[in-house]
Amino acid sequence: MLDFVQQLVSGVALGCVYGLIALGFVLVYKATEVVNFAQGDLMMLGGFFAFTFIGMMGLNYWVGFAGAVAAMALFGMVAERVVVRPILGYPQFSIIMATIGLGYFLRSIAGMIWGTDDLKIETPFSQGVLRVGSLVLAHDKLSVIAATVILCTLLWLFFNKTTLGTAMRASSENMLAAYYMGIPVKRVVSIVWAISAAVATCAGVLLAPITFIHSNVGLALGLKAFPAAVLGGFGSIPGAVVGGVLIGVIESMAGFYLAEGWKDVAPYIVLLAVLLLKPEGLFGLHVRKKV
């Protein structure tokens, strides 16, 4: 039982990271119908920025964290402006290739700047543990879960209670009508990219004490976060987080209770099963396009 809870907590923590990356996928997809395959690499870059601010420049953890988030938000806007906007309106295929290319580019650049070693950030959560009876929970994992809950609450408030957030939902539902309302759609799209890069950075920094930062961390996690987004029903924000947590828990349970090798396969088996039974995903809207 103790093992089960232990595995559950670390699964949820890992799943939260998947969920946050998946959230970035979903935000960008909802706003522009673009699938950004470089989402995981934005997370990786965010982690390196944080390492630069905290590990190399010696800034306070929170200051460095905020700096990395701000820098990456700006980077997300620039990436949208330079890579995606010029080919918007062309076939999906070209845009997907462009984001895959962006991912390769970021990984190579990160390798050149920060090298290929695993880097570590000292965080206030790196060492401590929480003991509840005989249960031992590491602070780094709990911090990921807490931060995800806080971030999701903030995003929910932003999208539902502010005019700009409502305008973002409006633009994603009907972009043409948003133009008719005088909503500056292009600026809204930039802000969506900024938010998704910022969320990815939070995931990267929170993950740093658990898996370290290296230039391929984004690719590996992006490949897990993508099924999380699909599982939740691509296009649903709560679905992305729930999908992420599910994938994380399944992976962690499979790694503990099943034989070697199941760990990486199990999430995909569940994904395939869900897609067979409920093709729109767990939280997807039941809208089927008639061809």
Binding site: T166, A167, E173, L176, A178
Partner: peptide, 25 residues
Amino acid sequence: SHVPEGREVFPFLSVRENLMMGAYP
């Protein structure tokens, strides 16, 4: 202001939110 052909409301936004979007500027 332009009321487009086929109405083009925001389907998942509430009536009130739709109206507030009209006042976005």
